[in-house]
Design a binder for these strands. Structure first.
Lengths: 147, 147
DNA sequence: ACATTAAGTTTACAACTGTAACTTATCTTT
DNA sequence: AAAGATAAGTTACAGTTGTAAACTTAATGT
C-alpha cells in the first residue's frame, strides 16, 4: 500500500474504493454490478471511475488474460486518515475539539474503539495546552464565541 | 444562523468563510485584503467567491450605502460539524473509530477539549456495542484486517 | 474460423470550481 | 457638477467531476 496522502480521490471515486476495499479484490463485472446495486450507476460510469482510479494509482490491474483483477493500491485506513486530516487542516484549530466531540457523539463506536480513544486521550492530557488558538487569520488569536 | 446542513461550501469558499467567521463581519475591502494576504488571491477572486457565498445564502450583505457589510449566515461550528459528519457518512462505519483516533492523535487539543471528550466517551461507553459492522456493501459485515 | 458476448478504452458533455478580467454604479473630492 | 477612486456585479475560461454513450479488442460457444 502506497502513499494515500498524495492521491486525490473524488467523492464518487471514493464510493468505488469502498467497494474495492471491502471486496479486497474484484473483477470489473463484479464491481459494475455492485455499484449498480449500490448507486444505480450504469456500467460505463463504474468503468470510467475505475479507470481514473487506475490512472491515478489508487487501484491496480493484475492478471494475464481478460477478466482482469483489480485491487487497491492505497489502503483504506490510511486514505480515511488522510481525508480526515485534510478536512481538519482547513478548519479553525480552536474549534477542532468541539467538532471531534460532535463526531464522537453521533457515530456508532464499539467498546474497544472507545477504550482506545480513552487511552489516547489520557496520554494526550498529560501535556495538553491550556487552550488552542484560532489560526484563521494572521494575528487574530481567537474567534467569536461558540456558534 | 440557518441550516448549514443544506448549504454546500466549496474549498476556496471555505477559506473565505473562515475569514468572515473570524472577523465576525467585514467589508469587501477588508476581506479582499485579508484573502490577498492569506492566499495571494486577486481582488476579483475574493469578490467572486463572496458573491457565490451570498447567492447560496451562506453570507448576507447589509447596510444602506456603499461600503456594505458582510456577515455569516451559517455558523462556523455547525458548518464544521456538518462537514465532518458528511465525511464520516461516506466512510466505512467499522473504521470510524480508528479514524477518529488518528485525528485525535495528530490535532492539538486543549485540556478542556480533552476533558469534554472524556466525558462524552464515558457516557457513550455505557451502551456501546461490542463491535460496529462494516456498512460498505450490502450483506458483507466486515472488511479486511487493518491496513 | 466466425459470430456473439463480455471486457476494456475513448470520447463526450454538462455542471461545478478556481481564478480573474472587464464593466457599471456609486462615493468623494475638487 | 465633473473627475477620479472604489465598490459591486458580470462575464470568462480552463480544469475537474459526475455521468454515460460509443467504440475496440479479446474470449467463447458452435
Amino acid at each position: 500500500m502506497i502513499d494515500a496522502k498524495h492521491v486525490t480521490i473524488t467523492d464518487s471515486e471514493w464510493e468505488v474504493m469502498r467497494a474495492i476495499w471491502t471486496m479486497g479484490q474484484t473483477t470489473s463485472r463484479e464491481l459494475i454490478d455492485t455499484m449498480n446495486q449500490l448507486e444505480g450507476w450504469s456500467d460505463s460510469t463504474t468503468k470510467t471511475l475505475l479507470h481514473r482510479l487506475i490512472k491515478k494509482g489508487a487501484v491496480e490491474q493484475t492478471g494475464a488474460s481478460r477478466p482482469f483483477t483489480f485491487k487497491p493500491v492505497v489502503g483504506e485506513k490510511e486514505s480515511m486518515s488522510a481525508a480526515a486530516d485534510d478536512l481538519f487542516d482547513h478548519m479553525c484549530a480552536m474549534r477542532a475539539g468541539s467538532t471531534i466531540a460532535q463526531v464522537i457523539k453521533t457515530r456508532e463506536l464499539s467498546k474497544s474503539d472507545i477504550a482506545e480513544l480513552q487511552k489516547i486521550l489520557a496520554e494526550k492530557a498529560k501535556d495538553a495546552p491550556e487552550m488552542v488558538h484560532c489560526n484563521c487569520l494572521p494575528g487574530k488569536m481567537t474567534c467569536e464565541e461558540d456558534s
